[in-house]
Design a protein around this nucleic acid. Structure first.
Lengths: 348, 348
DNA sequence: AAATTTATCTGTAACGTTTCAGTTTTTTGC
DNA sequence: GCAAAAAACTGAAACGTTACAGATAAATTT
């Protein structure tokens, strides 16, 4: 207690939040030494480090984020850029949860930045770039030629995408294998005797629209089925329009005997439309759907579903940005989840 | 250009992010003057303010958050504390969206902090308090006697709750009127000839369990109906258990002729269970449900539903914390949303 | 015309951290 | 035994901002 008085005397502490200064005072060391001890620098004695760490733990010391950020530019923030047009059924909560599980073990905070994708997808990215408000970014709704990816790559901002691009830039991503999903869907449908299949795909601007189309067309050829057009319907068409279209389709002389959907909520409308036309799931028609939460099977057990594990996606995305921030090569931070089919009632 | 050289010369600027120093240099003013001009302080000349504002806008100046935070302690962060046990069906995304819409027009960022409510609800609150990491907090899953409310009030941390408490502390809140919802549900059911009603309520620890029970019991008395017990089922019971219970209930000699549910996803299980027992919605039984996204009506148009506008709740909550931060009295920041019934197919 | 006010403006210090360039002490080399 | 090197530690400066306590010049009062 008294041998501290010989030292340069920083200042005794109040009941406030402890800082490096507090620890320096308690240990009788310099602020610099404490700082370096806590980051395990090589020029600090082993015994000193131990002592500093002990006192720090004792005081419940937590580095002041503003101090670190001001000095180093490191924000300890991961930004999740969400489109407000995104599917509602549990997508966001699961994504946030997955990311948080990974971030929970770190100093990183998660800042959520929703915005209208339709209006201008670049806005949030430019904001983050201009203000340096995040160390890493997670984006979704990828396009084959994506300006956000181009800009962040150019400006060296670590990021990861939920979905792939196709522009010759290697970047971290996590994706669901929509091609395999649709291909396997066709296969299963044909095995169940279906031949005339419709595909409710995403908007054509998105990468996964292309993937699902490729899977679909490969499937049609490999398993000998034919396509029934969904017209201008996409997964983002208002549900009522989808319902109406599905009903019209069902009343055609030669209606589809199966529909493959890439959106859980759109599938609800498909079911409503086909049933309104008197066609029964599992009998006259099969509907296959991807979903982000297990709810379709509760509604219609006859439905064939694949549940995209969005929580797992969130985990992978978070791990990838963190690794990217740590300098891991983009090529090593790419993963694709295979579709997992829900066990089905009837047969199969 | 040259008259700047007579001045104290801060330093010419690179291509970096503009700071007060940059503006000071460009205008030939002192850093303090620029700072005060931008906050419209009374001791700065009108013409000077104009000039500073112009240059600031020109440069796209944005105050450095770390600088402000370090100096003033103001984080410009609102923390949304989410329970991972929260209902999945769109709740989080809508809440986040609503909050963001309000925060979008401000300097505030939204940090999302999920955690296990079951484990210890105090953890995130204590963290925010200890690290001063937010200017305001939004919490949900309120209990009548809520320790989080007690602590934040005591420590003077602005917050708002989604749901009410009952402990004699006036604090900002936004709530959905669950009492009115259940009361009106009973009324509608009785008008449709139902008499034996079951209530699937939340866990008893939560405030809205009490509200829904009160509404229920008032309804039973006022409209002369009787209760059929839901046993130990709550909205948080695993769906499969709810389904099984609903089926068992439906096979009783005197089954309920109506069920009121406080959770959209739980209702799916209720429907599955009752239908498995051969009872048809709108015929032998009515199911009334609250939901946070319009999806039950797509699945079973016969269902009576109220959709809680979670996006609107998010907006109200965000407005309330901001107002609280600005010193508005808690009593003025309390609001309750009345239930809005979806138009129904059959009659009514 | 001198003294006071008023209107504008400004330098310094501090918030908590890390980097840089040392300084002091101990150990090693020969 | 003494120079050189290694080990352990440290103060000053800086990141961008704002509060404080002036400073300067112009306008007003007496």
């Amino acid at each position: 207690m008294d041998d501290h008085s010989k030292r340069p005397i920083p200042a005794p502490t109040g009941g406030e939040r402890p800082t490096l200064k507090t620890i320096a005072y308690m240990t009788g060391l310099g602020i610099t030494t404490v700082s370096r001890a806590l980051k395990d620098a090589p020029d600090i004695g082993a015994e000193t480090k131990e002592r500093v760490r002990l006192v720090a733990r004792q005081l419940g010391y937590q580095p002041n984020r503003a101090g670190v950020r001001l000095r180093t530019g490191k924000t300890n923030v991961i930004a999740l850029v969400l489109s407000i047009e995104q599917e509602l059924m549990g997508f966001t909560s699961q994504m946030v949860q997955g990311i948080s599980e990974v971030l929970g073990g770190t100093q990183y905070h998660l800042v959520v930045t929703p915005h209208s994708f339709e209006k201008d997808p670049m806005v949030p990215v430019r904001y983050i770039l201009d203000t340096g408000s995040a160390d890493g970014v997670i984006i979704s709704r990828m396009e084959p030629d994506d300006q956000r990816v181009r800009l962040m790559t150019e400006r060296n901002l670590p990021f990861v995408t939920h979905g792939r691009t196709d522009m010759g830039i290697a970047h971290p991503f996590h994706d669901f294998d929509n091609e395999a999903y649709v291909y396997q869907a066709v296969e299963r449908l044909v095995k169940r005797g279906r031949r005339r299949i419709a595909l409710l795909a995403p908007l054509s601007r998105f990468s996964y629209q292309i993937h699902s189309r490729i899977g679909f067309e490969r499937g049609l050829v490999d398993f000998q089925a034919t396509e029934v057009s969904m017209g201008r319907m996409t997964t983002e068409t208002p549900l009522e329009e989808i319902r109406a279209y599905a009903e019209r389709l069902s009343r055609l002389p030669e209606p589809p005997d199966a529909i493959i959907s890439l959106s859980g909520s759109a599938s609800i409308a498909l079911v409503a439309g086909t049933e309104a036309a008197g066609r029964r799931l599992g009998k006259e028609i099969d509907i296959v759907s991807k979903q982000s939460a297990e709810f379709l099977n509760w509604i219609r057990p006859e439905m064939l579903t694949v549940t995209e594990d969005v929580r797992h996606a969130g985990q992978e995305l978070a791990k990838a940005v963190l690794a990217r921030i740590d300098g891991v090569a983009p090529e090593l931070l790419q993963s694709i989840d295979a579709p997992v089919w829900s066990p089905m009632g009837p047969k199969d």
